[in-house]
């Protein structure tokens, strides 16, 4: 054995484990934006929550290669779980967040076996079908969900100290930021772990992954439940920071939008969802300020161009640009 080879193997396996400067700058910049633009706190909060939602999709699409058109199901479940809890006077945000994530994880775990059969097309349909079913369930059980009227409620203070909502928009954004950062760090860790490596193997070649003794089905169920929990947490955040929930959380367009965000930023490297959410929401804000009715057209055009030019190439470009910007910020700060 040569010590040099051993060292290179260790370095290779651990090469993504250390936080790079560009990553640290990214998070600091995000935090700085919240303080720099207090008047846009609501918009920033929306980006952070959407970023978490897109991160949840990245866990299954980017890491495990499973295409889903029904991620809104878990957003809705998480949001309603947190909202219903709050409307029963359990208004502590942390509790609601945990409940939202847990409820979504349970639904994810229960529906994951449906994903194990069939090809991508079947999965698209199953995930879409489940989200529609859940939306209809919420619609028909108005005693619990408020039906078409939705639910309005008020939230307690985060950790008993920081009020969120209309009086504390910046606190709301900070709360979302904290949750997003913690969950992101967890997801990042998961990606480096043997479990993350096994997911990559399943994505690349499921047949061979099975031939190495990986119980591929269980791994898929596990990551789907984790992804559902993340989406549920995003839903809970959305409910808590806007203090209203309605049935459109389950809509198809939510699932489609989140997929667009992730694709814009690039799937598989975990930052794509957050960057994509930022681009998507800022674009929507800018375009709809100019042409309120037609902003969807431009998003559609962007998508068509994205696919035609090739997602891989564009994503590589976004990735490089993002780390260049981060590095420049770091230099300027130093």
């Amino acid at each position: 054995m040569s010590a040099e080879t051993t060292r290179r193997i260790e370095a290779h396996l651990g090469r993504r484990a250390r936080w790079r400067i560009s990553e640290i700058v990214f998070w600091l910049a995000l935090l700085a934006v919240i303080f720099a633009f207090p008047s846009r706190a609501a918009l920033i909060n929306e980006i952070l929550v959407a970023g978490l939602f897109a991160l949840s999709l990245d866990l299954i699409l980017g890491l495990a290669g499973i295409v889903s058109l029904g991620q809104a199901a878990f957003l809705g479940v998480g949001a309603y779980a947190a909202a219903i809890l709050a409307s029963w006077d359990q208004a502590d945000p942390t509790l609601g967040l945990a409940a939202g994530a847990l409820a979504a994880a349970v639904v994810g775990f229960a529906t994951a076996p449906l994903l194990l059969r069939g090809a991508d097309l079947t999965r698209l349909m199953v995930t879409l079908g489940v989200s529609l079913l859940l939306g209809e369930l919420a619609n028909r059980n108005g005693w619990l969900t408020g039906g078409a009227d939705g639910l309005e409620f008020s939230m307690g203070k985060v950790l008993g100290r920081f009020p969120i909502g209309f009086t504390g928009q910046r606190n709301a954004a900070l709360y979302s930021f904290a949750v997003l950062f913690v969950l992101f760090a967890l997801a990042r860790r998961l990606r480096q772990s043997p479990f993350g490596l096994a997911l990559a193997a399943i994505r690349e070649n499921r047949l061979r992954a099975g031939a190495l003794g990986i119980a591929t089905s269980w791994r898929i169920v596990a990551i789907y439940a984790v992804s559902a929990a993340y989406a549920g947490a995003a839903g809970a955040l959305l409910a808590q920071t806007t203090q209203i929930v309605s049935l459109d959380l389950f809509d198809f367009h939510r699932s489609a939008d989140v997929m667009l965000m992730l694709i814009i930023g690039g799937a598989g490297w975990l930052y794509g969802g957050i960057i994509g959410a930022g681009v998507f929401i800022v674009l929507r804000d800018v375009i709809s300020a100019a042409t309120p009715e037609y902003w969807e057209f431009w998003i559609g055009l962007l998508l068509v161009v994205l696919v035609m030019v090739g997602r891989d190439r564009l994503q590589e470009y976004v990735r490089r640009a993002a780390s260049r910007v981060a590095l420049r910020l770091a230099r300027d700060a130093a």
């Binding site: 260790e10 290779h12 396996l13 651990g14 998961l190 772990s193 043997p194 479990f195 791994r219």
Partner: peptide
């Protein structure tokens, strides 16, 4: 049987 480990960084 450490393949389901989702915490430890691979290769440590």
């Amino acid at each position: 049987r450490s393949g389901a480990d989702f915490w430890r960084v691979a290769g440590t």
